[in-house]
Design a protein around this nucleic acid. Structure first.
Length: 227
DNA sequence: AGGCTAACCTATTCACTCT
DNA sequence: AGAGTGAATAGGTTAGCCT
C-alpha cells in the first residue's frame, strides 16, 4: 500500500529538507479521538509533516480500537471548494490543505479520492438519465412514425381495393366472364343481391387465402390486424 | 529494460448517523 | 434494527525516475 510504508524514499528525494525518522510508521490516525484533527503532525523545517510515530487508527498499540470521526462542516466546505477548483491534488495543495484544516495529508488525499469517485458516480447517473430521456423521445417519435406508416398503408390498401372493385364492376357490366374464384365469391355475396358492402369487401380483401388473389404481399406491405 | 515509488482508481469494509 | 453515508483500506495499474 502506497501510503503505509513506501512514501519515505520518494518524499526524501523530492523534499530533502524533510527528515523522516528511522522508525518510520506512517499510520492513518493520531492517537486520541477527541482531538485527532489537531494531532498527528509535527512541524519540521519548512512545513508540516505527518507524525510518523502515530499509532494506528484501528489499533492504538494497546489493542484499543479507535473511533472514526467525521470531518467537520468547515473542513468539508474547504475541501469542497478546493475540489471545485481542481479535482486532483498536487503535493503542495495537499500539504496546504492539510495544514489549514488540521488533517493529515493522507486524509486529504483519501477525501479527494472518494470525492472523485462520488463525482464519477454522479456523472454516470446523469449520463444515464440524459441517454434515457433521449431514448424515450426517440421512441415516441418512432411510434408516431410507425402509426403514420400504418395509416398510409391502410389508405393504400383502401385505394387499391376501390380500384379492383371498380374493375370488377366494369367487367361485370361489360358482360365478361370472371374467372377469379375470389371475385366469384364476392360476386355471389354482394353482386348477386345488387348490394355493395364495403365492410365485407374489406374483410374479404384482408383475409388472404388460396382463393384470394389480392394478396397483401402483392402490395408489399404489412396490413394492420383487424378484429 | 526492469525495479522502485507516488499517485491514482475501483471495490470493499466498517464506523457512524439517521429514520 | 436496518439502511444509507462516507472515511478508510486493499489491491491493482500507471507514470516518472533511477540504475
Amino acid at each position: 500500500m502506497d501510503w503505509n510504508g513506501t512514501i519515505r524514499p520518494f518524499i526524501s528525494r523530492l523534499e530533502p529538507s524533510l527528515n523522516f525518522p528511522s522508525n518510520y510508521n506512517y499510520n492513518q490516525y493520531p492517537e486520541g479521538v477527541e482531538d485527532m484533527n489537531n494531532q498527528g503532525f509535527e512541524e519540521a523545517g519548512n512545513g508540516l509533516v505527518p507524525d510518523l510515530n502515530m499509532n494506528s487508527f484501528m489499533n492504538n498499540g494497546k489493542g484499543k480500537k479507535k473511533k472514526k470521526k467525521r470531518l467537520t462542516s468547515d473542513q468539508l466546505d474547504s475541501l469542497e471548494r478546493s475540489f471545485q477548483e481542481e479535482n486532483k491534488l498536487d503535493r503542495d495543495r495537499k500539504m496546504k490543505l492539510s495544514k489549514e484544516l488540521g488533517l493529515q495529508p493522507r486524509q486529504i488525499a483519501v477525501w479527494f479520492q472518494n470525492r472523485r469517485a462520488r463525482w464519477k458516480a454522479k456523472e454516470l447517473e446523469h449520463s444515464y438519465n440524459t441517454l434515457k430521456h433521449e431514448y424515450d423521445v426517440i421512441s415516441i417519435e418512432k411510434q408516431k412514425l410507425q402509426d403514420e406508416v400504418m395509416e398510409l398503408k391502410g389508405m393504400l390498401v383502401e385505394q387499391a381495393t376501390r380500384n379492383q372493385i371498380s374493375t370488377v364492376f366494369r367487367e361485370i357490366s361489360g358482360g365478361e366472364i370472371i374467372e377469379s374464384s375470389s371475385i366469384r365469391s364476392w360476386n355471389k355475396t354482394s353482386i348477386a343481391g345488387n348490394e355493395y358492402h364495403p365492410i365485407v369487401e374489406c374483410d374479404y380483401i384482408f383475409n388472404e387465402d388460396e382463393n384470394n388473389p389480392v394478396s397483401t404481399h402483392y402490395w408489399d406491405i404489412q396490413l394492420p390486424s383487424y378484429p
